[in-house]
Simulated scan of single mutants.
Amino acid sequence: MTLSPQALEFAQTLVRMNTVSQNSNLELIHFIRDHLARLGVKSRLTFNDSKTKANLFATLGEGKPAGIILSGHTDTVPWDGQDWSMDPLSALVKDGPEGPSLYGRGSADMKAFIGIAVSHAEQFLNSEAPFAIHLAFSYDEEVGCFGVKELIADLRDANIQPLACIVGEPTSMVPAIAHKGVYRYKCCVRGKEAHSSLTPHSVNAIEMAARVVGRLRDMGEGFEREEPRFEGFDVPFSTTSVGQFHGGIADNVVPRDAEFRYEFRDLPTANAAQMQSEVVAYAKSLEPAMKKVAPAAGFEFETICEIPSFLGSKDDPVTRLAQELTGEQGTTLVAFGTEAGLFKNAGISTVVCGPGSIRQAHQPDEYVSLAQLARCEAFMQGLARTRSIDWPPA
C-alpha cells in the first residue's frame, strides 16, 4: 500500500499554511474552494463575525439522494516554546519512528486527512456510489469547536440533511465510537480589599475562590470513587481539573479579585450541565456572607467552551462502513474531544476515523507516517467504489 504523490502533495500544501487558531484560515479555505471550483463544484462558506475565518462545505455528487460527510478542522495549536528540530511549517518527509513520515504542525491533527480527502474530489465526483460525498472543514476546533456550530446551523437552515459523518481525527485508522466531552469555564471572584491586619473588614477573593476549587476537587474524587465505569477509556470516569488560578497584588493586601479556570471531561453517560450547576449553586451559597461585608462581592461564571461527549455504536451503519473500508474488525474509544458529538447531536450518524495518532498531535516534531496516510487514501478510494450500504439501519 503506497501513498500517491498527489495525495502527499495536497497534505504537504496544507501543512505549510499557518492556520494556528489565533490566525486566519482563509488561505487554506480559499485554496480548497478554488481547487473544487476548477472541478465545477461550488462551496458554501460560513464566516466568523470578523470575516477572518471560514468553514467550507461542498457536495461532490450533487443530486444524489443523501451524502456522507468527511469532516476536519483547519486550525492547529501553536508551537511557541516547543523544541522543534525543524520548521513546523516545513511539511518535511523523512524517516521517523514509524518509517517515512510527514512532519509539521497539523500533519496528524488533522491536515493530512483533509488533504487526502480533497485530493480525491474528482474521484468522488465520478463515483457510481449511491450517495454524495460532502466535505466539511471548520475553523476554531482547537479553541472550542466554534466554527462547526455555525456550519451545522447553516446546513439546517439550507435543509441539507447528510446521511452520516466521518470525522477524520487521528485514530490510527481504527473507527472510534465514543469520547468524553470537554466543558471549560472561567470563574471571577470579587471580594473587598483591606490591609491584612484588618481581615474582618474584607472579603478575601482568593479564599472564596479556593473554597470553590476545593469543591471541584471533591467532585472529582467523588466521580473516581462512585461513578459507574465506562470501560475502554484510559480514565473510565469523569474528571475535573483546575488549569489556571490568578489573584492578589501583595502579601499584606487582602485580595479583592481572583480568577480561576477549570474543566469537566464527562463520560458520554454523564451530565456536564448538572456538574456545572452544582458548582454555581455552591458558589452562590457563599455569597450571602460575602455581601454582608461588601454588597458588590460575589461570583461570576463565563463559559469558555462546551464540547459535548460523543457516543456512537459499533452497530451504526457508518461504523460498519468505516470498518469495511479500513479492514478493522473492532472499534476504539478516544480520550480527546472532537466535533463528533456536535454532528451526532444534530441527528447525523457519526464515527471518528483518521490517520495518525493523538500521541503525536500537539507535540514538537508532530508527524504522521506515510503508511497511515496510505491507509487513509485506500479508505477514500474504497469509499468512492462503494456501491451499496445498509442504510437506513434495519
Rank of each mutant, 00 (worst) to 15 (best):
A132C: 15
G115M: 12
A129L: 06
V93K: 06
Q123W: 11
L135P: 00
G96W: 00
A91M: 07
L125V: 12
D80P: 05
S85K: 12
A112F: 06
W79R: 05
S127Q: 08
H134W: 15
V118W: 04
P100G: 02
I114R: 05
D140A: 11
M86R: 12
K94V: 03
T76F: 00
A108D: 07
D95R: 06
P78R: 08
S138D: 09
D87H: 09
D83Q: 13
A108L: 04
M110W: 04
A108G: 12
H134A: 05
E98A: 10
H120T: 08
A132R: 11
D83H: 14
A117D: 07
S85D: 13
G99H: 04
P88Q: 13
S119R: 04
G104D: 02
Q123D: 15
I114A: 11
P78D: 09
P130E: 08
W84A: 08
A132D: 14
D109N: 14
M86E: 13
F124M: 14
A91C: 06
A136G: 05
G99P: 02
I133P: 05
G104P: 04
Y139E: 02
P100N: 04
A129W: 01
E122V: 12
A129G: 13
W79I: 01
S138F: 00
A121M: 10
A136F: 09
T76H: 03
W79Q: 07
K94Q: 13
A108Y: 03
Y103M: 00
V77Q: 13
P78K: 10
A121C: 15
G96I: 07
D75E: 07
R105V: 02
L92Y: 02
S107T: 09
D87V: 01
A129K: 11
A132G: 12
I133A: 01
W79S: 07
D75L: 03
P130H: 10
G96Q: 00
P78H: 14
H120M: 10
Q123Y: 09
I114Q: 09
M110I: 08
L92I: 03
F113V: 03
D109V: 15
D87M: 08
S85T: 15
Q82C: 06
T76N: 04
D140L: 15
E141I: 06
F131V: 06
W79C: 09
S85N: 10
P88G: 06
S107L: 01
R105L: 08
A117G: 04
P88W: 04
E98L: 14
S85V: 06
S138L: 08
A108F: 02
A129R: 14
D83F: 04
